[in-house]
């Protein structure tokens, strides 16, 4: 088990013929992901590594059973591609593209209300269930199947955490980047609720950063409704106020969204905070072992 994706998930790639799209299509195929179709307007009839290309998502869906779409379309056209996938009824949409105008994303999120689709991203590395399915641009080999769920607003910092978790002797159930933009389709809370129900996931690593309130909302959910151990890390303690730190969403504005407030909220909710970014792997390892011991104790009379 895992959340969202598994060995049999069938994938469509929108923007498959582009430089990034074709490169990452091959990376995903090599990982064992079942990519069944691609879309690039005007390129129907072509193939990319044996994957047939269609002009529209609707045409691809008419010929293939599609569970998820990965969007690798340039920013000016990406929101339209998301809408197209939603309209075609694709259940899981992973948008990797960075730099989509905010107003376009506001329209997308509005359109998603009441629909069957879930959007992950944009501006995210994607989602991976190690050894089974990779929809995204993360490097496959650093992952190992295991019991830690990883959720993050970042890309390379997630890889850093995953690498540490693997090195510490643990593995991952599913890793998801929710995206570094101010407006994203899926929140930490949405994912925590799913990890709660996933028997494979025994603990969660949550990686946040300055800006917005996603971590505070996650803290509230963890405090009231999440029953598995969580290890947290928040980047941006040294970030100055009022400056956008690379990610469009990583900005302290009007004194809100500081690392300190987020760390305090998570800690108060019982989350074990990694002392520094190189300590994420060993901290989750330690917490899981403590948890294992606790379970053993409960078995005794």
């Amino acid at each position: 088990m895992s959340i969202f994706v598994h060995r049999e998930t069938k994938i469509l790639i929108q923007g498959i013929t582009g430089r990034e799209g074709s490169f990452h299509a091959r990376q995903c195929l090599n990982y064992g992901t079942k990519i069944v179709a691609g879309v690039t307007p005007g390129k129907e009839g072509k193939t990319v590594d044996g994957v047939p290309v269609y002009d529209t998502v609707e045409r691809a869906c008419a010929r293939h059973s599609i569970d998820a779409s990965m969007i690798m379309v340039p920013a000016p056209y990406a929101a339209d591609s998301i809408l197209e996938a939603v309209e075609a009824g694709v259940e899981l949409i992973v948008c990797v593209t960075e730099g989509i105008p905010l107003l376009d994303m506001a329209d997308v999120v509005r359109f998603l209300k009441g629909k069957n689709s879930r959007l992950i991203g944009p501006n995210c590395p994607g989602i991976i269930t190690p050894g089974a399915c990779k929809i995204g641009i993360m490097p496959g080999p650093i992952h190992r199947p295991g019991r830690v769920g990883v959720i993050s607003r970042s890309g390379t910092l997630t890889y850093e955490a995953v690498r540490q978790i693997t090195k510490a002797g643990e593995g991952q159930s599913t890793c998801i980047g929710i995206g570094g933009d101010p407006i994203v389709g899926t929140s930490f809370v949405d994912l925590l609720a799913l990890f709660q129900e996933d028997p494979e996931t025994e603990g969660v690593v949550l990686i946040g950063e300055i800006g917005g309130r996603a971590e505070e909302e996650a803290a509230e959910f963890i405090r009231t409704s999440f029953h598995k151990p969580v290890v947290g890390y928040i980047s941006g303690k040294t970030a100055p106020a009022g400056k956008r730190m690379g990610h469009a969403g990583a900005i302290i504005s009007g004194g809100r969204g500081t690392a300190e407030v987020k760390i305090e909220a998570l800690r108060a909710a019982g989350v074990r905070m990694a002392e520094h970014p190189a300590a994420i792997g060993e901290t989750i390892r330690k917490v899981l072992i403590e948890n294992d011991d606790g379970k053993e104790d409960e078995k005794r009379v």
Binding site: L157, T158, T238, A239, M245
Partner: peptide, 26 residues
């Protein structure tokens, strides 16, 4: 650094060991 999140984490790491980062650079 490559990546915004890792770049911020690197700045924080420098401060954690007693240094002071001069910049954010992704």
């Amino acid at each position: 650094v490559n990546g915004a999140g890792l770049a911020m984490a690197t700045m924080d790491m420098i401060q954690h060991v007693g240094g002071a980062p001069a910049n954010f650079l992704d």
